[in-house]
């Protein structure tokens, strides 16, 4: 479902949202505030998401846990 392509797809989605924010902002005195705030919000949120995604894309370490109980482990496992 989510793999390397998600980064680009996400970018396209956010770019579209930014464009929508630019054109659909209510006219009038507050238009500048709407445009700036919407686009900056979309951009910041995308950045945050994409950085998190990238950090987990090719992880260098894997989760290691002790003290787990078996029912928690056997929800999601592969026998060696």
């Amino acid at each position: 479902m989510a793999n390397g392509w998600s980064i680009l797809i996400g970018f396209v989605v956010v770019a579209l949202a930014c464009a929508a924010g630019w054109f659909l902002s209510p006219k009038g005195e507050t238009q500048t505030i709407w445009r700036s705030s919407l686009i900056l919000s979309f951009a910041s949120c995308y950045l945050m998401w994409v950085i998190t995604f990238l950090a987990q894309w090719h992880p260098l370490i894997e989760p290691r846990a002790s003290g787990l109980r078996s029912h928690a482990v056997y929800e999601n496992y592969r026998p060696a």
Partner: peptide
């Protein structure tokens, strides 16, 4: 991720996980 359960694993022992595949 999914846990890799070694043979003879009991509650509380250290356990590591592995990626399922290309899914993130």
């Amino acid at each position: 991720w999914r846990w890799v359960v070694p043979d003879g694993w009991t509650d509380g022992q250290t356990i590591t996980a592995e990626l399922k595949g290309s899914y993130r």
